[in-house]
Design a protein around this nucleic acid. Structure first.
Lengths: 149, 149
DNA sequence: TCTTATTCCTATTAAATTAATAGGATTTAA
DNA sequence: TTAAATCCTATTAATTTAATAGGAATAAGA
């Protein structure tokens, strides 16, 4: 019942980008340094984030990554789904294509998993990056290099 | 963000026991057959369930397993915690010993994970085995060998 | 007492997933 | 032209999951 580092690191990365969104394209190198995450691994996380339309890349020197939308229009749920796939405590209640098992009809435990799925989704969809930025500003000055995320 | 088969199979196993609780000790062999789960694997699941005080074993011929408490006094949350460990979408908000990371103080994303944890726990703790038995009875006659779990 | 059915216990293993690492190709600002 | 960056593909190490195997201990019943 754990989130993998894809979701955890990826959320920290986009939050880092939200906090630095006035600096132009952010290099993975700088995110990696601030967040203590391997740059190569971050690179892999950017692929699904781009595909989901959450970040955009700028190639070449002085390039990097920027958010494709305003932080207030990106929810934590979108980020997590882009990186971890549809929310699904078990495959048979996946948000997109539930894998019906032969016991599905009248399945009792499935009802529990569906409620778990909905409660997770509700929490994740209730936070935007902007909410997290606001929260972050409470704890650290805007120019601090420490962001506590 | 997936439950492993430990939790899924384990819950089905104890629900099977709740549905058959008037039959005396239930053998793993019979659960394995009804549920389509490897008997050897079920055996491993019984160890933490016993340790958590949810099931009791009866050794020897005619032995098997029985629930250690009434179905109405066993929640899905207890079963899942026994098998999967404390609820914790990420380690730093684990229900028992959260692993503080050096960024914990003022950490913003951690707040999100804590809410996810609480919402999962709330759902799991809101169902008892008795609730699931009741639900199951709606779908199948008491004597049917098919339980749809 | 013997047989059989069962849990108990330990070790091993196959498969899948996670979390990187490596090396070079491509692009673009300066 | 150079340097800084993303892009792309492949490989790998570590961990976890999901079993499988083989036998020891226990107890009911013939």
């Amino acid at each position: 019942m754990k989130l993998s580092t894809k979701g955890r690191y990826g959320l920290r990365a986009v939050l880092d980008m939200a906090l630095n969104k006035n600096e132009g394209p952010i290099t993975l190198n700088s995110i990696a340094e601030r967040q203590g995450i391997s740059e190569g691994y971050l690179e892999q996380l950017m692929v699904p984030l781009k595909r989901a339309g959450l970040v955009k890349s700028v190639r070449g020197a002085q390039g990097g990554y920027i958010l494709a939308k305003e932080p207030k229009n990106i929810t934590v749920g979108e980020v997590i789904r882009a990186l971890e796939g549809p929310i699904a405590p078990v495959a048979c209640v996946s948000e997109d294509y539930p894998e019906e098992c032969e016991r599905a009809e009248g399945c009792v435990t499935r009802m529990v998993w569906a409620k778990v799925r909905d409660s997770i989704a509700e929490v994740l969809d209730s936070f935007t990056l902007e909410d997290l930025v606001q929260e972050s500003r409470k704890h650290t000055s805007q120019n601090s290099y420490m962001y506590y995320i």
